[in-house]
Nucleic acid binder design. Sequence first.
DNA 1: AGAGATACCTGGGAGC
DNA 2: TGCTCCCAGGTATCTC
Length: 274
Amino acid sequence: MPELPEVETVKNALSPHLDGRFFERIETHIGQLRYSLAPLYDKELRNEKIADVRRRGRYIIIELDNLKAFIIHLGMSGSIRIVEAAAERKKHEHVIWHMNGGMTMRFDCPRRFGFVKVCKLKAAGADPQELSHLGVEPLEPDFDAVYLYEASRKRTGSIKNFIMNNSIVVGVGNIYATEALFAAGIKPMRTAASLTRAECESLTKAVKAVLKRSIEVGGTTIADYKSVDGSEGKFVHELQVYGKKGQSCPVCNTEIEMTRLGGRSSCYCPKCQK
DNA sequence: AGAGATACCTGGGAGC
DNA sequence: TGCTCCCAGGTATCTC
């Protein structure tokens, strides 16, 4: 399931294949994913040089020279691959971009939680209006103890849901929220407002460390996620508590427990996490 | 305003 | 074996 490290990995792998090329034709095999795919037939998306490929939160932005852009979200099961136009289409490859030079970029999205949106940018390199609600990037310096502490005052929801809230900080999903809270020694069900300054310091550091480490090893492959070349992320081998209910804590051997927060399962060590 | 619930969707695993 | 049921996940939308 693609979280920030996975999307970062995909974006980095995609970039050299798209750089300076243009889309000659876009082919869709389904009417809509999360949103209708009809806007992809806009003529202004064709034969226009690809100016930039970047990431914002869990969204990939492919910007064209005319300031039109695609926003791609992989949902929970989406992947993108670059293959020759002649390659056989996989069952769930719903969108195929044909590039000059004979290669295609293909969006495989079995569970259809992903989407492709078309938008118009105000300037080169600008964030689309569609993503203006997003909070800070977790790997940027503005996600720090002061920010987290101040944003979380008066917040009565759980700290886990708080750091998974896209309007606060982007790209932290269930896996990395779970792992970061373990690394910081904080129970996921604590209210956000109950965190001290010191705990905000350890939590922001833990979020950054977990995300950076995962990017280094190519993300986390649980079931569906693969990068552009089909390789699997190796962070799954470094998970400490995610999905390990009933197993021993790698630090203190206490049995890992699970609770549900915001409808999502949340594993934690009852002894290491206060 | 914030927080919780729910819908969306399908593959995979468990249980019968 | 084959069926049904349930779960996983992020985001948008709703309700309180």
